[in-house]
Write a protein that binds this DNA or RNA. Structure first.
Lengths: 205, 205, 205, 205
DNA sequence: CATGAATGAGCATTCATTCAT
DNA sequence: TATGAATGAATGCTCATTCAT
């Protein structure tokens, strides 16, 4: 009698909205109770859904959390990639990238790490989540590598193996961000200091 | 007429040995299943004791894990402090400290962190373990601060606020150690690169 | 367009029915294994539920048992209070009260006492359940006091302090009820004898 | 070379002394932690013996507690029986018996009851301890029956079935003793009131 | 599709009892 | 005989997952 076309889209939209609401709720619960403290019931209550409904959208609690990470990581990587591929001139581009890294580390990267990494070296290969974490690191590595490659070409970065530079950059950011996260205020500007040390180190000269 | 003394020592020794066996077993379980995955039953099985026996040595699972950390941390801090207070001349002392930091990070520091830090910024104050973690960090901070103060006096480190330097040093070490822990071999000497970047950064000149 | 109302009632009814089934099961378990011998698993098995289901209805084993007592006690006190406040003329009202006390003592009061009273004087204040038991006693005391006050006014009870009378009445009832409960049949009518002795004692004259 | 005779007695005496120390310790633990809260380790610590040593003297925790009751009960019954068989003239003898009952109820009978009686009617036949409790009651019953028989002959007690009188007497004592045990002070002399009500009841006339 | 009650395996912890020294 | 470490079954409770309505 009528085309079945107009309806499905609405259904679909609704469904996606609910899925997103659940993810948002999960993120809030993670923030308040810590990742290990999350239960499906907490998420359900926070999202104002029934427990069973969560399972309509995600096969398991684990999948829900992985999806959450994927979403956050994606958002973050797109931002970072856009910046790296953007038109900013060099010293500013590097500083902007450090700022972004720093901000995201304070915000959501901890969650990502928490979900996948028993902090410490890395989840043993075979551990649940190990593969996903490896992929995340890979992706970040590629973007930062691109950033530093441009720096070598145009920004005064030392030539040669970029791997230690990538490690240095992320290590510095992580350390300063954790310090801020734990309430330490040493009286300086973290993002600026990260960049300064990354470029010139701590010795006189 | 005779002391009941000769025997107790054996009992005592035996007891301590078993206690240590349990701690060792716990460490092995942490390594294989991750800290969150540790179960009293796992530890018991690994230590080849009955569940109840664990509780004769430790009041609770929590206390067992805290003890484990305390032992590892103490060993590590004493080593580091001895080195820092030792007679080595400066550039070598710094390198030696970095080497030690690096080695211990690959080995046991991840466990320490894992036990106390929901990875991410820091456990919220009030969280179990938060206070202990804070104390650990404090202790490491103090030792490294001493190391860097000597560097400012005698070793060519830039004068001024040492806080960002401490953060930089630990961040660099952590990052390179994690990389090695996850199987990445970028073809360089991590400890040497850490020191080089810490001192001179990554830019040319 | 349509209310989602018609269904919830059924759910709700079902839920309450199950809750009641659990309470009933718990009472049966108390009767067979004694209060101290009650296990959540026993209750679950008796109620034909899974262990976890018990906890959907009661926050803890303790709360379940307290609820059980509250229900029984409430039923009993309402009955007793109704009788005491009722229109019966005096000698009959007193006999009716004794009958009721006696019957309930044989049935459920022992449970109530058992749940709250480590038999013996009383749970030390601070003991879990001590406060609740005190409240139960208070409530029974108030009702019986009212009953005896009316007896002093209209029923030939001696004037003066009613406290020993309350103690005497409950003591007599408890003793005769326990005797019946333990299978002793001395050949008399317990409730009648309780009243007779309460009023006139055991001496001639 | 020498007679083995002189020694055994000392050994035996020592052994009995230890046994008694354990019983005393058990009684103290019961008093502080409640009967249900007693553990073998508590008793051992209180008695300053090792856990295993307890089992040299008592086959099981249960047997230890039963022995404890037996000792207390025996002491109590002997006292009571001596009084009942003694030369006191009647009204005084009854009062003295009530006083003794009352005192022992406040002291150790609660323990006896606690050990054997889930308060309430009685442990179901077959329940552990049921038989022993029955025996205790029997013994008390016999003594009190003798007391009341003498009262019927010489002391103005009503003739006829003494069973309800026994029940009344114990019920009154128990009730008043419990009240005192729970801190209630109604302003009268409990033992005197017990006797008065037992003899003459609560009605005027 | 949404609901939320039911499930049951899993976990930390306790404690009576045994046994090698 | 005394010791006390070792045992392991038992208990209260949690939580991811299922499924009838």
């Amino acid at each position: 009698m009528s085309e079945p076309a107009p309806h499905p889209p609405r259904r679909e939209r609704e469904r996606l909205r609910h899925r997103q609401e659940i993810l948002d709720a999960a993120l809030r619960v993670c923030a308040t109770r810590g990742v290990e403290g999350v239960t499906v019931e907490h998420v359900a209550r926070e999202a104002e859904f029934a427990v069973g409904s969560i399972y309509r959208h995600f096969r398991s609690k684990d999948e829900l959390l992985k999806e959450l990470v994927a979403v956050l990581a994606d958002r973050y990587f797109q931002e970072l990639d856009a910046l790296v591929c953007g038109p900013l001139p060099y010293p500013e581009k590097l500083q902007a990238a450090v700022n972004l890294l720093y901000d995201r580390h304070v915000e959501s990267l901890p969650l990502i790490a928490a979900l996948y990494a028993a902090p410490g070296p890395m989840p043993a290969p075979g551990t649940p989540g190990a593969e996903e974490l490896r992929a995340l690191r890979q992706r970040q590595w590629a973007i930062l590598d691109k950033l530093l490659a441009e720096g070598q070409a145009l920004g005064g970065l030392a030539p040669g193996n970029r791997a230690p530079m990538v490690l240095a950059l992320t290590g510095l950011v992580t350390s300063f961000a954790r310090a801020e996260g734990s309430g330490l205020d040493y009286g300086g500007d973290p993002a600026a200091d990260v960049l300064a040390i990354f470029l010139s180190g701590c010795s006189t000269s």
